[in-house]
Design a protein around this nucleic acid. Structure first.
Length: 896
RNA sequence: GGGCGAUUGGCUCAGUCGGUUAGAGCGCACGGUUCACAUCCGUGAGGUCACUGGUUCGAAUCCAGUAUCGCCCACCA
């Protein structure tokens, strides 16, 4: 650690401070909840999406961390029983995708290694990549309970997965069936609809002639039916041609047969409503094994489904002469041959939607296979009711509609994946075709139906969709299915925070599985954040070179600055643009805090005397502003409005504390006539308010605030109330505001601002002292100005100040505030500018007064508007008229 | 083909229950060597709140429609 705890370096260096601070938190075991829940404490448990084990954290993870850590630190300071449990997801398909590429470089492949050695290799790979996520989380300041860290492939998760599946099975919610599923030929597994990305693409629509069969079974060269297709290679699997039953053109052909090219298969011509007469030729080739619609039609007409693609999308043995060729190669070959035969009637460009694998981008194929399904309707109904009836709230609320729409139209979940890395489905087959599902780690003792011994059973080779284990995360991490102390203490959880992009993948599954397995909503709030975009609102992508790496930013400007930039000015559920200036704004804010603290610590009287005397107006004022900020920050955080919280604290820190209070306090700390006791009181106020500011800001910017806190603690334990670490300190308590101090200080600052404005407009040199003449609006204002003379003079750069100015015979009053009018003694040249300004000001006030007068004169307004609103307008008019009176008097005096 | 969201100064975004003269940060202009900070200080300019119509004493805010952009969902060969 290079910084001492006694003083702050002239420049804030996040790169050295932040890691040292994290070490101190770890050493103090500051993240874990207490051993036992404190009596009377509320519970706050946040659920985070466990990042994929293989990756490095991207900017989206940094956003997750910023939001969640802010909430967690806030609740910890509030004294809630707070848990943030870290972990990583094994990411079945994603991990295999990455490992496959890695081992390919080593000259290996899935096939060359075999399942067992591949999995060994995977575990080795896991152990290499897993620590990366952890260390990056630490850099971002995540105050997670590392002792409870979990992994979706650990033993606890494995047990939860087996138990969950067994319970679903026992409840009759699991079935195994042949179905047409989406298949990725590169990942060589089934993927779900959600994992399929549909893109509009320009393809080709080919028109192909299928010749009618003659009685002897040979194709009739002169009679054919033309069908349109975008995937000619699938014709190898055709088992019919379909037309619309009412289509005059083909009425006579229904019931006859055509001969499939290359394979010479006889295909019936069937009639079905599904066919769109206006599309293509109005006749469709039917490939039940490779098209969802054809599959349905095939079932209606009892057609055979012939699979012509293997798992890598090469033509299978059923494809005759084309066997073994890649699907696109085969397509070209087939087209060439059709062309040669004169059976390719037409080809034209055709806009269509093509499905791609989310993971690898490969064009997916519908594929007929036997799959495990979860019957989700009953699960979805409960998940819907929970949200509809408000037991789980979604933030922002409009995502409830998205959630509802998806849940209402949900399809059964194909949970099996033909991969190796993941939880193997705990189902065993016996030679009699029976299925036995068990949650026992060792597998079943015997077939559940016929009693065949375990030795004769074989386990299912499919594994679970990664989201099945992720869907158990809120409770599997707490020890479920056992009734552990953690389950009792932390479940159901509080807030589940994630991006809206995985609402269906993850949130919906957690809701369904959580309700079914634990009979409780797994969390009471779903907080969805938006996506982070680059400049111009475009997606960040490596190819565009506009990716912001969070760890680079932490290195450069610090985690605090990054966190601030991510949280400030963002609304839940909407995308945000992260730009360089925004990040710099965060850095500047860290710097500002650092320097404010440097000032406060450097201004410490040596020694600090026992304070005495009544607090000054600025002291009362800053405490009142603090009280309001505490209220605003608390309300915002309780309402999950992180941007509101960030704005409240930023405004207080910069505008109230630095720009006004510290400048005013400098006057008191440096005045000659002050006693040590008074000076001590002012300084202590500065230190104590700084202490509370650090508390308020700590959830969002934990490092810089903790570092300053450490120094402040040494310099002034009263300011930290003896709480040695900020992370374990308490959230500021609500306090009463001092509205009189706020009004009185406004009297002073409004005048200062007006004078500065006038000086700036006149082009007065900044250092030049000008005489000030003031006519106070009332006795109270005059008293405030008199008492505040010592502040007024240096901050407005005016001297001497005449508080009892006489308007008669003086130059035009150049400015006015609600508490009075004033003019500056100036040279004649500047006076014209001042006068013009005064006239403009007067006109503005008159226009305002006229507007309010009109409003009040409108009978309907007085009658129908609420009394409070009317009253407010009346008061405003009175104030405007008072100011106008003063200004008019000043002008009259001049004109005489 | 459905659905959702957005549209507020040059840029990025706030704007509560409809109620003063619509705010902030960045950028811009002008001025600044005052002992916390130029990653700063002071001052200022800049907005028909996308458009049209309606409700209302009063609309950025509520309602209807239009336009543009974005996203999600969807089995048309």
């Amino acid at each position: 650690m290079t910084t001492t705890r006694r003083e702050l370096a002239p420049r804030y260096d996040a790169a050295t401070v932040e890691p040292a601070i994290y070490e101190r938190w770890m050493a103090a075991d500051a993240f874990a909840p207490a051993l036992e829940s404190p009596a009377g404490a509320e519970r706050f448990v946040i659920i985070q999406p466990p990042p994929n084990v293989t990756g490095a954290l991207h900017i989206g993870h940094a956003l997750v961390t910023a939001i969640e850590d802010t909430l967690v630190r806030y609740h910890r300071m509030r004294g809630d029983d707070t848990l943030w449990l870290p972990g990583v997801d094994h990411s079945g398909i994603g991990a295999q995708f990455v490992l496959d590429k890695t081992i390919a470089e080593e000259g290996d492949s899935r096939a060359s290694l075999g399942r067992e050695r591949y999995l060994e290799r995977m575990w080795r790979f896991m152990n290499e990549t897993r620590p990366v996520i952890g260390s990056q989380h630490r850099r971002l300041g995540a105050s997670v309970d590392w002792q409870r860290e979990r992994f979706t492939m650990d033993e606890g998760s494995a047990r939860a997965v087996r138990t969950a599946f067994k319970r679903l099975w026992d409840a009759g919610l699991v079935y195994r069936a042949e179905a047409l599923v989406t298949w990725c030929p590169r990942c060589r597994t089934t993927i779900s609809d959600l994992e399929t990305i549909h893109r509009d693409e320009m393809g080709t629509l080919w028109t192909i002639r299928y010749h009618l069969a003659r009685p002897d079974g040979t194709p009739d060269p002169d009679a054919w039916i033309s069908v349109a297709t975008t995937r000619p290679e699938t014709l190898l699997g055709d088992t019919a041609v379909a037309v619309h039953p009412d289509d005059e053109r083909y009425r006579d052909l229904v019931g006859r047969e055509v001969i499939l090219p290359f394979l010479a298969r006889r295909l019936p011509i069937v009639a079905d409503d599904y066919v769109d007469r206006t599309f293509g030729t109005g006749a469709v080739k039917i490939t039940p094994a490779h098209d969802p619609n054809d599959y349905e039609l095939g079932k209606r007409h009892g057609l055979e489904a012939i699979n012509v693609l293997d798992e890598e999308a090469r033509i299978s043995a059923a494809g005759g002469e084309f066997v073994g060729r890649d699907r696109y190669e085969a397509r070209e070959a087939i087209l060439d041959r059709l062309r040669e035969n004169g059976d390719l009637e037409a080809e034209r460009p055709h806009a269509m939607v093509v499905g791609h694998c989310e993971r690898c981008g490969t064009v997916v194929e519908p594929r007929l296979s036997v799959q495990w399904f979860i019957h989700v309707k009953p699960l979805a109904e409960r998940a819907l009711a929970s949200v509809r009836e408000g037991r789980t709230m979604i933030v922002p609320p409009h995502f409830e509609k998205v959630y509802t729409h998806w849940m209402e139209n949900i399809h059964d979940w194909a949970v099996g994946r033909q991969l190796w890395w993941g939880h193997r489905i705990p189902a065993w087959f016996c030679p009699n075709g029976h299925v036995t599902v068990t949650d026992a780690e060792a597998g079943p003792d015997a077939c559940a139906e016929c009693g065949r011994p375990a030795a004769e059973l074989t386990q299912e080779t499919d594994i679970f969709d990664t989201w099945f284990s992720s869907g158990l995360w809120p409770f599997s991490t707490l020890g479920w299915p056992d009734e552990t102390p953690d389950m009792a203490r932390f479940y159901p959880t509080s807030v589940m925070e994630t991006g809206y992009d995985i609402l269906f993948f993850w949130v919906a599954r957690m809701m369904m599985l959580g309700l079914f397995l634990t009979d409780a909503e797994p969390f009471h709030t779903v907080y969805l954040h938006g996506m982070i975009r680059a400049e111009g609102g475009v997606k960040m992508s490596k190819t565009k070179g506009n990716v912001i790496d969070p760890i680079d930013m932490v290195d450069e400007i610090g985690a605090d600055a990054l966190r601030y930039a991510l949280v400030a000015g963002t609304a839940p559920g909407s995308d945000m643009r992260l730009t360089r200036p925004k990040l710099e704004g965060g850095r500047n804010f860290s710097n500002k805090l650092w320097n404010a603290a440097r000032f406060v610590l450097g201004a410490r009287p040596q020694p600090v005397a026992t304070p005495s005397g009544a607090p000054t107006l600025p002291e009362r004022w800053i405490r009142s502003r603090l009280a309001e900020t505490v209220e605003r920050a608390t309300r915002s955080l309780d309402g999950l409005d992180l941007a509101g919280y960030a704005a409240a604290v930023h405004e207080f820190a910069w505008n109230d504390y630095c720009d006004w209070f510290l400048e005013l306090a400098k006057v008191d700390l440096r005045r000659q006539d002050a006693t040590d006791a008074e000076r001590a009181r002012t300084w202590l106020t500065a230190a104590e308010v700084l202490g509370d500011l650090l508390r308020l800001l700590h959830p969002l910017m934990p490092f810089v605030t903790e570092e300053i806190w450490g120094t402040l603690d040494v310099a002034e334990p009263r300011a930290t109330r003896g709480e040695p670490m900020l992370i374990r300190s308490s959230w500021p308590a609500p306090a009463a505001r001092d509205l009189i101090a706020e009004r009185d200080l406004a009297t002073l600052t409004e005048l200062i601002r007006e004078i500065r404005d006038l000086r700036s407009g006149m082009g007065t040199a900044a250092g030049e002292w000008l005489p000030l003449h003031v006519v106070a609006a009332d006795a109270r204002s005059r008293a405030v100005l008199e008492a505040g003379l010592a502040y007024l003079e240096p901050l407005a750069r005016v001297r001497p100040v005449d508080l009892d100015a006489d308007l008669g015979g003086r130059p035009s009053a150049a400015g006015s505030t609600p508490s009075g009018t004033f003019w500056l003694g100036t040279d004649p040249a500047a006076e014209a500018a001042a006068r013009a300004r005064a006239e403009a000001h007067l006109a503005d006030l008159q226009a305002q007064a006229a507007r309010v007068r009109d409003l009040l004169g409108n009978g309907s307004f007085a009658e129908r508007a609420p009394a409070a609103v009317v009253e407010r307008e009346r008061a405003r008019l009175a104030e405007l008229e008072a100011q106008l009176g003063q200004l008019a008097a000043a002008r009259d005096a001049l004109n005489e």
